[in-house]
Amino acid sequence: MTIRPVELSKAYRLLQLGATTMLSAKHQDDADVMAAAWVGLGGPNKVIAYLGTQSYTRKLVEKSGYFVVHIPTVQQMETVLYVGGHSKFTSPKKLENMPLFYQDGCDIPLVTGSAGYLLCKVVHNAQQEQQFDSFMGEIVSAWADSRIFDGRHWLFDEAPEELRTVHYVAGGQFYAMGRGTKFNHGPGQD
């Protein structure tokens, strides 16, 4: 094995193994969905999402104070690529043929077929939002597809390929979640 230096501009890719996500937001009657690669946990019941200033969805999040994180599956890859490649700024009818639904207690549209959904209320931090395009959200509701999440754990070992979550690793390369491995003890333990 050889340990080599990694160019700093590419170092983030060492950690960028998390699930590909989509974000949706709505303000009044205006809604949008976008693909988002840089979304992750920011502490207990907190999510951090990078929303660039070029994002139409960001404008809706800023106005409403809410967003939904979607955990897409393999069967949704065309949708992920579509919402990632089209801006509502230039494609105002972007959501016209999108398979959307509304969950009780959530007025933000959800994309049909995701493995899970996290409704987040923005925890405002003007400096982080303006300087780093980083938005923290407190998870206020969550829903998941019971075929692949039993309320406590992912069930990927039993999941059909099309229901596995998708992970973006850069350069147009995605991976579907694989099989699990369970360890009963660690180093120094019997």
Rank of each mutant, 00 (worst) to 15 (best):
Ile3Leu: 15
Pro5Val: 09
Val6Ala: 03
Val6Pro: 08
Glu7Ser: 11
Ser9Asn: 11
Leu17Asp: 03
Thr21Ala: 01
Met22Asn: 02
Met22Arg: 02
Ala25Met: 08
Ala25Phe: 08
His27Phe: 15
Gln28Ile: 07
Gln28Pro: 03
Asp29Ala: 14
Ala31Pro: 04
Ala31Thr: 08
Met34Gly: 04
Ala37Ser: 15
Gly40Arg: 00
Gly40Phe: 01
Leu41Trp: 06
Leu41Ile: 06
Leu41Gln: 13
Gly42Ile: 00
Leu51Ser: 10
Thr53Gln: 02
Ser55Trp: 00
Arg58Gln: 02
Leu60Lys: 04
Glu62Ile: 10
Ser64Gln: 01
Tyr66Met: 06
Ile71Glu: 01
Val74Gln: 10
Gln75Asp: 13
Met77Arg: 13
Met77Asn: 05
Leu81Cys: 14
Leu81Glu: 15
Val83Met: 13
Gly84Pro: 09
His86Gly: 08
Ser87Trp: 04
Lys88Cys: 05
Lys88Ala: 09
Phe89Cys: 02
Lys93Pro: 00
Leu95His: 08
Met98Tyr: 08
Leu100Thr: 14
Phe101Thr: 11
Gln103Met: 14
Asp104Trp: 05
Cys106Asn: 14
Val111Leu: 11
Thr112Leu: 03
Gly113Gln: 12
Gly116Asn: 03
Leu118Cys: 08
Leu119Lys: 03
Val122Asp: 00
Ala126His: 09
Gln130Cys: 01
Phe135Pro: 07
Gly137Asn: 00
Val140His: 00
Ile148Arg: 05
Asp150Ser: 08
Asp150Asn: 15
Gly151Met: 10
Arg152Met: 10
Leu155Val: 09
Asp157Val: 10
Asp157Ser: 12
Asp157Leu: 10
Ala159Arg: 04
Glu161His: 07
Thr165Tyr: 01
His167Ser: 13
Ala170His: 09
Gly171Arg: 05
Gly172Leu: 12
Phe174Pro: 08
Tyr175Ile: 08
Ala176Gly: 07
Gly178Phe: 09
Arg179Ala: 08
Gly180Glu: 11
Thr181Val: 15
Thr181Pro: 04
Phe183Leu: 14
Pro187Glu: 11
Gly188Lys: 04
Gly188Leu: 04
Asp190Asn: 10
